[in-house]
Amino acid sequence: MTPFLAIQAIVIGVAVAASLVYACRRLMPATSQRWQGALANSLSAASRPAALRAIGKRLQPAAAAGGCDSGCGSCATGCGSTPAADEQPLQFRERSRE
């Protein structure tokens, strides 16, 4: 294998891996955060070297913070969730037989 083919294979592999990570984060956000948290916890173990613990600490997913319009309704600001749109029931009508 020539050096060019090796570099090409590495670049393509990195591009495919980055695309897979992006697709997982966009299509499965809860699962990807759970996987990220599991990886961060395993890297942050006390038995790991300091460099891996630092990487694990950096990989920890951000805690969900409720802000205005988050729908939590736990603060006294009264921002709560937005009211639902008026719903109209479906009405099925028989075809006229002509």
Rank of each mutant, 00 (worst) to 15 (best):
G67H: 15
C72S: 13
A40G: 05
S44N: 10
D69M: 14
P83H: 08
R58I: 00
A62Q: 14
S32G: 03
K57H: 05
L90N: 02
A45Y: 06
G73E: 13
S47L: 05
C75W: 09
G78L: 13
T77Q: 12
P49W: 13
S70M: 06
S81R: 09
A51Q: 13
P61E: 08
Q60M: 14
Q33F: 05
A40P: 10
P89M: 01
A51M: 14
D69P: 04
D69V: 13
Q36S: 06
G78H: 05
Q91G: 03
N41V: 04
A38M: 12
L90F: 04
L39I: 12
R34N: 11
D86H: 02
L43S: 12
A40I: 04
L59I: 01
Q60N: 13
A85Y: 00
G73H: 07
G78Y: 03
G78E: 12
D69L: 12
C72K: 07
T82G: 05
A38I: 12
N41A: 07
G71A: 12
A85K: 04
D86F: 00
C79M: 05
D69T: 15
C79L: 01
R93I: 00
S32K: 02
S47K: 15
S42L: 00
C72I: 12
T82R: 15
G56Q: 11
K57Q: 06
N41Y: 09
R58P: 02
R58A: 01
S32Y: 05
G37S: 07
L59R: 08
G73F: 03
S42A: 03
Q60L: 09
L59S: 01
L59E: 06
P89K: 01
C79S: 05
L59C: 07
Q60C: 11
P49F: 01
A50S: 15
A54S: 10
P83Y: 07
L39V: 08
A84M: 02
A76Q: 14
T82C: 06
S47C: 07
G56H: 14
E87D: 07
G56T: 05
A65E: 13
A85G: 01
A45T: 00
A84G: 01
S44A: 09
A38E: 14
S44E: 09
A38Q: 09
G56W: 08
R48V: 07
A50V: 11
I55M: 02
C79H: 08
A51R: 15
Q60K: 15
S70T: 13
C72M: 12
A51G: 07
A46C: 10
Q91T: 05
G80E: 03
A76E: 14
A40Q: 00
S47P: 01
A30F: 04
G67K: 13
E87Q: 03
A62H: 08
P83W: 06
S70V: 06
G78I: 05
R34P: 00
A84I: 01
A63P: 11
T31Q: 15
A54F: 10
C75G: 08
S81T: 13
R48G: 02
F92S: 02
C75Y: 03
W35N: 03
R34G: 09
G78F: 04
